[in-house]
Design a binder for these strands. Structure first.
Length: 423
RNA sequence: GGAGAGAUGCCAGAGCGGUUUAAUGGGGCGGUCUCGAAAACCGUUGGGCAGGCAACUGCCCCGGGGGUUCGAAUCCCUCUCUCUCCGCCA
């Protein structure tokens, strides 16, 4: 959420940012309402000051045996007017708050302006495209042949694009999750969390999934709970409404969670196999940091996610997203994409973002820099470290040996009972 | 799911409609005393909104929301959460 005062005094910048992100916001309507709100607020506050003063006088007169009937009578009218103004104020605030929720975050100055994927900037590429001396087989064929997954039966249970892993495939999922969590906790000092997979409306608004992305989420109407699209939601809301001790920052969490996405309206080739599924597994990284350090911390976080891909020996690239590709709540974002040899394309496996104080404002997450100092909003960051399905795609297609088998990257061998290949 | 109890400041904990601008402890911070420390004593101690260049001023916040009243932490309604007991359950 942007601060009302900030919008008021940086109107042109905000408008430019909304355009650069390709969003549409009722900004003029908001400004008009905000002005009306402040005017009424001032009137109401003046009347309340009056009421407080006279109420004290009434109490004093009564205790000294006087009869303040005249004052009580005149205050009756004041109270009525206060009530009218408060009602009006509540009505306007409901509207301004709702409008405010649709303002996207401001992009960081280091983000390139652009409208499409083509204007993202590839900042580095790691490794080389694997050279196979045979025609690479797509992962859906490898997986079906080795009995790693069974999409037909997954559909029987929940519908199309619900994946089902079995045998070594299920074990591979478990191995990857453990491998990633071990790396982030042991090597990079993240604290492991096992969060709920459902979250309430308040939390979804806090991280910015609501109101804009309501259609993308699974919603349990009876309890008004949402299935989390990412562990970012529970992890970031972990400190909702709190003031953190500045000396504890940065606070870093990692969590495995299933992620649920309706992906309404996406069909066809893009969704073949594991490319795009409604439920997938992911290890997430979340940090609470000081405003001064957030962009440096973002670089570190990207490095932590990259370390996973490097350990797995997968060819990948890192892109800095342009303004038009940036998500609603993000100020700056790097995407990590792995190479799919059979599909001959890059697949996004991680999105690492700095949200500035946007989420912190919505969720009320602050820190106190030092004893007696004023509380400030933290900056929140998150990134996938990393998402499993497309990582599995890259592993199967990169390490296929041409005889129907798949060798395993060394880092995974200990997590797969010492086995060096899937066959 | 049923019955009951509760939610107050950094923590503990008072508060029976108007000297409560939230008592009293404890903790933290600052000071006096001391060579230094302890003890003792004194002072201080959150958040938000609006106006103002500013010093500052006003308003709001006792779990959330609404109501009664000239006036609400206090009375009423409602929601959420926590605890105790019962039921159900992997």
């Amino acid at each position: 959420m942007l601060e009302a005062k900030f919008i008021r005094s940086n109107l042109e910048r905000v408008k430019a940012a909304v355009d650069a992100k390709g969003e549409h916001v009722e900004i003029d309507q908001y400004i008009a309402l905000d002005e009306e709100r402040r005017k009424i607020l001032q009137d109401a506050d003046a009347l309340k000051a009056d009421r407080n003063r006279v109420s004290k006088e009434i109490a004093e007169e009564k205790s000294q045996g006087g009869d303040p009937a005249e004052k009580i009578k005149s205050m009756k009218d004041v109270s009525r007017r206060i009530k009218e103004l408060d009602d009006k104020l509540r009505d306007i605030e409901e509207k301004t708050d709702a409008l405010l929720m649709w303002f996207p975050n401001m992009p960081d100055p280091s983000v390139p302006v652009g409208h499409s994927e083509d204007e993202n900037v590839v900042v580095r590429t790691w490794g080389e495209k694997p050279t196979l001396d045979f025609e690479p087989v797509p992962h859906w064929d490898i997986g079906e042949a080795l009995g790693l997954f069974d999409f037909a039966r997954g559909s029987t249970i929940a519908g199309s694009n619900f994946s089902l892993f079995k045998g070594d495939g299920a074990k591979l999922v478990r191995a990857l999750v453990t491998f990633m969590l071990d790396m982030h906790t042991k090597k990079y000092g993240y604290t492991e969390v096992w969060p709920p997979s459902l979250a309430n409306r308040d939390c979804m608004t806090g991280t910015g999934q609501l109101p804009k992305l309501a259609e993308d989420m699974y919603h349990c109407q009876v309890d008004d709970l949402f299935l989390i699209p990412t562990a970012e939601v529970p992890l970031t809301n972990l400190h909702k409404g709190e003031i953190l001790d500045g000396e504890r920052l940065p606070v870093c969490y990692t969590a495995y969670s299933p992620c649920f996405r309706r992906e309404a309206g996406s069909y066809g080739k893009e969704t073949r196999g594991l490319n795009r599924v409604h439920q997938f597994d992911k290890v997430e990284l979340v940090k609470f940091v000081t405003p001064e350090s957030s962009n440096d911390e973002l670089e570190k976080l990207v490095g932590n996610a990259e370390a996973v891909l490097q350990a797995l020996g997968l060819h990948y690239r890192v892109s800095l997203l342009c303004t038009g590709e940036l998500s609603f709540a993000a100020a700056k974002c790097y995407d990590l994409e792995v190479w799919s040899p059979a599909q001959q394309k890059w697949l996004e496996v991680s999105s690492c973002s700095n949200f500035g104080d946007f989420q912190a404002r919505r969720a009320g997450i602050r820190y106190r820099p030092g004893k007696g100092e004023k509380a400030r909003y933290v900056h929140t960051l998150n990134g996938s470290g990393v998402a499993l399905p497309r990582t599995i795609v890259a592993i199967l297609e990169t390490y296929q040996t041409g005889d129907g088998k798949v060798s395993l990257p060394g880092a995974l061998v200990p997590y797969m009972d010492g086995r060096e290949a899937l066959e």
